[in-house]
């Protein structure tokens, strides 16, 4: 059973109460269609558990098969550096079908952020180390594709429909 080698810390992008009793972590790729579907499911899981759950997202771009995954991850990190990570994260997944640089620039502008700043950051690879760090922490923890979820420290294997994730989180809660 694969376990999380790099614990969730305040360095991560976390939604919800940082001290919540339950943690769901996703390693995801913005261009992966399965992650696109998981996006909506995670929203439902969050709704189900409310304040009892914190959700964290780490980048796991499969850049060799998804041409825009790395750029999208760096764009979300750019927005994150301006305190707008989750808005960008949501916007990218909601517009996944049109994912390409022009979309990322448009979303950056939509959030009132500096599009030229984004272009400069992408050219300089400013957020590349952060994305790579996420990726490698995933590799170390047995992430084997996208999306990979961790419920607490344990990798969630098998289906990740709403009921599967809810059951896994409830089971975790019973253990605690």
């Amino acid at each position: 059973m694969a376990t999380l080698k790099v614990p969730v810390t305040p360095e991560d992008h976390i939604q919800g109460d940082p001290d919540a009793e339950l943690t769901l972590l996703e390693y995801g790729d913005y261009e992966c269609p399965h992650c696109g579907r998981a996006y909506g499911i995670v929203k439902q899981v969050q709704k189900h558990f409310g304040r009892r759950l914190r959700f964290a997202f780490r980048n796991f771009p499969l850049a060799q098969i998804h041409a825009h995954a790395q750029t999208a991850a760096e764009t979300a990190e750019f927005a994150g550096a301006h305190g707008r990570f989750w808005e960008m994260h949501d916007l990218i997944f909601e517009n996944q079908g049109r994912l390409a640089l022009p979309l990322l620039v448009a979303l950056t502008e939509e959030l009132g952020l500096d599009a030229q700043g984004l272009r400069d950051a992408l050219t300089a690879g400013e957020f590349e180390p952060r994305v790579r760090r996420d990726f490698l922490s995933g590799v170390r923890s047995g992430v084997n594709g996208t999306p990979t979820f961790f419920v607490g420290e344990r990798r969630h294997d098998g289906p990740w429909e709403l009921e599967n994730l809810v059951t896994a989180l409830e089971a975790r809660r019973a253990l605690a």
Partner: peptide, 16 residues
Amino acid sequence: PVCGDQMALYNEVLPE
């Protein structure tokens, strides 16, 4: 299937 593919993963981890 693409996104969970073992060879695709190793391809990304190749530098390591």
